[in-house]
Write a protein that binds this DNA or RNA. Sequence first.
DNA 1: AAAAGGACCAACCGCAGGATT
DNA 2: AAATCCTGCGGTTGGTCCTTT
Length: 171
Amino acid sequence: MGRPPCCDKVGIKKGPWTPEEDIILVSYIQEHGPGNWRSVPTNTGLMRCSKSCRLRWTNYLRPGIKRGNFTPHEEGMIIHLQALLGNKWASIASYLPQRTDNDIKNYWNTHLKKKLKKFHSALEPNNDINMSHDHSTTTSSSHRFLSNKTPPPPPPPPPPTTSTSHGGGSS
DNA sequence: AAAAGGACCAACCGCAGGATT
DNA sequence: AAATCCTGCGGTTGGTCCTTT
């Protein structure tokens, strides 16, 4: 007997969240704290799967998150950390507590990747073929990019990791 | 003024790891 | 010790808005 799908397709709503759904989710989490996502749809009556609830909360509804308008400093941090860690968006996000991994990932894919590519081809017009290897090439020269564009970001602080264990650490 | 193309953002899907029974 | 379940992560897709022709 295999494991049942996380959200069996029947009756599960997909697509953009409505303000009403947001309110239900937020008030439930305010009362019970985040975590135990499995029980959220059951207890709230939301026709969403647990994954969708968690995603909505972490990427949009969670208090204290900042969206859009990345500062040059944040941008520098992201480029630096991406060169350091690769596409570990969750790890990168842990250095920018106000940002979500999804937001950072989107920003990287839409803005920074392009910016870096431009920079690289300006720097090494003959080698722009190498740009297909995203990470390997960004590693060394993104630092040069940084030193041109923005002040070098501070060395990565120890990851916050405020009791990420689910269930136990309800904030 | 309308149409086409490109860019951006929010959300979904599948996979992997960790925890629990 | 093995099997199952839940959560989290990264990649990808779809829809909408903005800009250019």
